[in-house]
């Protein structure tokens, strides 16, 4: 009986070894270890053995069974591993093939510039104010110290609808409207973005519709130096920490003094190049202290209150920042243009 067990063990181990797949291995398992299997068969015949032999053979049988079981398990693991490897091989893809494109849109560059400036100023306690694009002559001009017949009205030829209504030529009327709402009490801290319209023939540098963003700060004791400091924050935010600003005199009917702000030219570092028209400086925006007439017309006591205002063109800022050569790109909505800007 011992010999039979030894033979069975050898046979079984050989068959386990040569089993080429899981099914063959399962057959081997059933044949030797199953209920009607060979080892079971041997154990059933144990009754015929003597008392002395029984534990010896029993122990041997158990050992043989354990050995075969272990061999099967080991083989089982090997076969599983082989199967997975085969599967993995079959499932391999060419990772260099293109992926499925995600459908993703994006923000318009002009709007990104505007939102960026809004975010900067709201973080400094400003609010975003809006107003109508079809504006009254009063708010567009008169409330801004531009009475009828004022020569500066020629500076911005306008689209009139009636004698008293026109497409606003700047976002400044929003300032007048907001100040009115404050009923003579400061502070007024607003940033006003929006579309504006002027009688210009569309070409690379002109557009009959464009955008503006203006800021206004009215309170007691607002000074030119506050304007300078605020514009410095803005310029560095927009164009980089290494840029310098300068103010130089200008003229706007609604501010006095009026200034224009230049930033130092990055291209030439101030030595002069074609970008800065050889001056080392690039014009960015107009600003000034709010004209007392404007304050008074909006119900503010100009002896008590003062303020500063500034206004800029997001188109110009975007064009300078990215070297965009044609203002019409902002209005054709060419996806080849739109796709290029996701962050400002």
């Amino acid at each position: 009986m011992k010999e039979r067990l030894q033979t069975l063990k050898q046979e079984a181990l050989d068959q386990v070894n040569s089993a080429s797949d899981q099914r063959a291995l399962q057959d081997v398992k059933v044949y030797y270890l199953g209920k009607k299997g060979q080892i079971t068969d041997v154990l059933k015949g144990m009754g015929k053995l003597s008392k002395e032999e029984r534990p010896v053979v029993g122990q041997l049988a158990n050992e043989v069974r354990d050995e075969i079981t272990e061999a099967i398990e080991t083989k089982q693991q090997t076969l599983e591993k082989q199967a997975i490897e085969k599967q993995l091989q079959e499932e391999a893809v060419d990772v260099t093939l293109p992926g499925k494109p995600s459908q993703i849109g994006g923000s318009h560059l002009l709007m990104s510039v505007i939102r960026d400036i809004e975010d900067l100023f709201t973080s400094m306690g400003y609010q975003v104010a809006e107003g109508p694009e079809v504006e009254t002559d009063y708010y567009n001009f008169e409330a801004l110290n531009l009475p009828k017949g004022h020569p500066a009205r020629d500076m911005q030829d306008s689209f009139y609808i009636t004698e008293e209504l026109l497409m606003r030529t700047h976002t400044s009327p929003v300032q007048a409207r907001t100040m009115n709402k404050h009923e003579g009490k400061g502070p007024v801290k607003i940033i006003c973005p929006g579309k504006v319209y002027r009688r210009d023939t569309d070409d690379a540098t002109h557009s009959h519709q464009f955008t503006q963003i203006e800021g206004l700060y009215v309170d007691e004791n607002i000074r030119m130096s506050d304007l300078k400091g605020t514009l410095n924050v803005l310029a560095k935010h927009l164009f980089g920490e290494d840029r310098e600003i300068r103010l130089r005199p200008s003229f706007f009917p609604f501010t006095e003094p009026s200034v224009e702000m230049d930033i130092s030219c990055k291209v030439c570092g101030g030595d002069g190049c074609s970008v800065c028209k050889k001056t080392g400086w690039i014009e960015i925006l107009g600003a000034g202290l709010v004209h007392p007439n404007v304050l008074e017309m909006a119900g503010f006591d100009s002896n008590k209150y003062s303020g500063f205002a500034f206004g800029m063109g997001p188109e110009r800022i975007a064009m300078l920042k990215y070297g965009i050569e044609d203002i019409r790109h902002f209005y054709t909505n060419d996806v080849r243009f739109l796709k290029q800007f996701h962050r400002v």
Partner: peptide, 28 residues
């Protein structure tokens, strides 16, 4: 004020920020 300031030089005006009461800004 403008006449004097421009000849005094805008470059000579310091950089400051308004020092009024703090107020809450932000989007509506």
């Amino acid at each position: 004020v403008e006449e004097i300031a421009r000849l005094y030089g805008y470059d000579n005006i310091p950089f400051t920020l308004p020092t009024g009461v703090m107020n809450q800004g932000g989007l509506t």
